[in-house]
């Protein structure tokens, strides 16, 4: 499905995308999109580059993505068995779960009493970062390309030289009384 996912098969990519979409949900990329559940308007973690970030050599997660995908599908299979869900065999088990069930399963995997919490939290961190930092790309380029997360957050853009400056930054007036014990240098007593 994705060039950047050369080391993962399509099924693994779908499973990881479905996980990222559970963390920061978004609209489907097209009518045939099964990984993205379409639970929210606007692009989610997947179209914000979650897989790129997970696969980036800098991130350090790439080497364990295949086992994470397999683990997620195992958990989904167990979840379906426990809850009496029938899973569509045409897609990986986690992808086959409806969005509310994906959410419920991820909540248990990332809970403090889950022995695997750390690795699922790490995968969630990369999903969030994809959406709200676009860290797979240079920020100026991500913004110029209409990065879904940064755009929906209203992240203001830089000056033409690629650096941020905010000339207007202060209400410019006294807004509270200072603590009566403040020292002449402005410190607590």
């Amino acid at each position: 499905m994705l060039d950047i996912a050369a080391d993962l098969d399509a099924s693994q990519v779908m499973t990881l995308e479905a996980y990222a979409d559970t963390i920061i949900p978004g609209e489907r990329r097209g009518p045939g999109d099964r990984a993205v559940a379409g639970a929210a308007t606007g692009g989610g973690a997947v179209t914000s580059g979650a897989l790129d970030l997970m696969l980036s050599p800098e991130g350090g997660l790439a080497g364990m993505l295949d086992s994470l995908a397999a683990g997620l599908d195992d958990h989904a299979t167990g979840y379906a068995r426990r809850t009496g869900r029938t899973l569509d065999p045409a897609v990986p088990p986690f992808v086959a779960l409806p969005f509310p069930d994906r959410t419920a399963l991820v909540a248990t995997l990332t809970a403090p009493d889950c022995e695997e919490q750390e690795m699922w939290v790490a995968l969630a961190m990369f999903s969030v970062m994809a959406w709200d930092t676009g860290a797979a790309d240079h920020t100026t380029e991500a913004l110029a390309a209409g990065h879904p997360g940064l755009t929906q957050m209203g992240f203001a853009g830089p000056d033409p030289d690629g650096l941020w400056r905010f000339p207007s930054y202060s209400y410019g007036r006294v807004l509270a009384p200072v603590h009566p014990m403040t020292t002449p240098l402005g410190d607590p007593a």
Binding site: I23, G44, T103, A124, V128, T133, G154
Partner: peptide, 30 residues
């Protein structure tokens, strides 16, 4: 963003508070 958002929780969340649908809504009001 990144470290500054992941642990923030959506107030009055009916589902998970630090990820998911309600989290996305508060992120949109960043």
């Amino acid at each position: 963003p990144g470290f500054g958002t992941i642990l923030a929780q959506a107030p009055d969340a009916t589902g998970p508070s630090w990820f998911g649908l309600e989290k996305k809504e508060i992120l949109r009001r960043w």
